[in-house]
């Protein structure tokens, strides 16, 4: 279902409350960069569940949502902890059958969303065939290229109910500046019915319009905008803060069992009412100490 914006910047609580249980959500789209952890934790606090999570590698976000009982299905290429390897909540849930996994490669999830964004039913690829991602799945089809004859895998479109993106800055209308690597942000935004933008800063529309080449999301796709400084911690955000590598290693040792996860979540998710309070839990210095200032860009006429 497509929702419509109120035209106002919301709190993250208000913005996330628009997401219904049972929704499909694409998130973690820039791979390890700028993962919308604040929005994920808000989903947990609101008890939104029965979610289908869609993404390339997800890093820890999907593991945390699974630990909190919010997820029924994962459509992804990789789910775990990039620093430590295993995501124990993901692993246990899949082994016990409480979460259903649709295995992808990074390119197949990218192409599925790109097909959704392009409004076509599928896209072909030279990847997948010969792997068990293809052989053990009912999702993909094998066809010969009608123009040449090579065997190709067909990847059907995915259109998420929601795509969540953590941006560096956005206007109140939802036009957003993104910089750093993009992963599959663009196809996921294009394919989604609704987009939630959380941003380090909400800025005057003139700031966004001063540099249209840096705009990664335009307002027509956006259903909700929330200002959320530090909203991607522990992942890094170019221009704002570094990755909190130690957090990933600590999380790995702290979540090997469900009861250990529950203790972790009591402190980091349910024990904080907002992101400001959350930030007070983070002791490490993650600020940017050696900034690179991009050369000035001139538009005009």
């Amino acid at each position: 279902m497509r929702y419509y914006m109120t035209g106002e910047v919301e709190t993250i609580e208000q913005a996330v409350s628009r997401i219904d249980s049972g929704s499909s959500i694409a998130a973690g789209l820039a791979l390890e960069h700028s993962i919308p952890f604040a929005a994920g934790h808000e989903l947990l606090r609101q008890g939104t569940d029965d979610l289908t999570m869609i993404g390339p590698i997800s890093d820890l976000l999907f593991d945390q949502l699974i630990g909190g009982g919010a997820v029924s299905r994962v459509r992804a290429a990789w789910a775990g902890n990039v620093s430590a390897g295993t995501g124990y909540r993901f692993r246990e849930a899949v082994e016990n059958g409480t979460v259903d996994v649709e295995d992808h490669s990074n390119f197949s999830i990218a192409l599925a969303l790109k097909a959704g964004a392009m409004g076509v039913p599928y896209l072909p690829t030279k990847s997948l065939i010969g792997s068990d991602i293809f052989e053990r799945s009912d999702l993909f089809l094998e066809e010969s290229d009608p123009f040449g004859g090579d065997q190709l895998a067909l990847v059907p479109a995915i259109e998420p109910d929601w795509t969540i993106v953590h941006a560096q800055r956005a206007s109140p209308a939802g036009d957003a500046h993104l910089w750093g690597n993009m992963g599959i942000t663009d196809p996921a935004v294009g394919a989604a019915e609704n987009v939630l933008v959380t941003a380090e800063e909400i800025v005057d529309p003139d700031v966004i319009k001063s540099d249209p080449s840096r705009v990664g999301i335009t307002r027509d796709k956006v259903t909700a905008v929330a200002e959320c400084p530090f909203g991607a911690h522990p992942s890094p955000v170019a221009g704002y803060y570094n990755r909190d590598n130690e957090y990933y290693l600590e999380y790995s040792t702290q979540t090997k069992t469900q009861s250990a996860y529950d203790e972790w979540a009591d402190e980091w998710v349910y024990g904080v009412s907002d992101r400001e309070e959350y930030e007070s839990l983070v002791e490490r210095e993650l600020g940017i100490t050696e900034p690179t200032i991009a050369a000035e860009v001139q538009y005009g006429q």
Binding site: N181, M182, I184
Partner: peptide, 20 residues
């Protein structure tokens, strides 16, 4: 760098584009 997206790997890259 722990990951390919740690800021030192983005800083002064040749390009930061997308997966496709």
């Amino acid at each position: 760098i722990h990951t390919m997206c740690d800021l030192p790997n983005l800083n002064r890259a040749v390009s930061t584009t997308g997966m496709i």
